[in-house]
């Protein structure tokens, strides 16, 4: 799960983004600006499709989407 999400972010969302360090599963995505709003919305749409879950708006919060670790924990809790 973690690798699938990291691969998607690296290949689909960060293709042009010159990051100083590699993206890790604990890298803050939205808060640090690695992803912009649209990138985050795309990521949410991706996990919904890939893992067949519905992410209601009230779940789109830092606890669940701060980094890849928290996304995985959130998905596992569903």
């Amino acid at each position: 799960m973690e690798q699938v999400i990291l691969k998607y972010i690296n290949e689909q969302l960060l293709f042009d983004n010159e990051m100083e360090e590699d993206l890790d599963s604990d890298t803050d995505l939205l808060g640090s600006g690695i992803l912009d709003s649209l990138g985050m919305v795309q990521l949410i749409a991706f996990v919904e499709k890939e893992f067949m879950v519905k992410v209601p708006p009230e779940d789109m919060v830092i606890e669940n989407f701060m980094n890849v670790d928290s996304v995985c924990a959130y998905l596992l809790s569903k």
């Binding site: 939205l30 709003s37 985050m40 919305v41 708006p57 009230e58 789109m60 919060v61 830092i62």
Partner: peptide, 12 residues
């Protein structure tokens, strides 16, 4: 919503 939910409220 929760503290910090402003982004999701706007996007939703």
């Amino acid at each position: 919503g929760k503290e910090g939910a402003g982004w999701s409220i706007t996007i939703a």
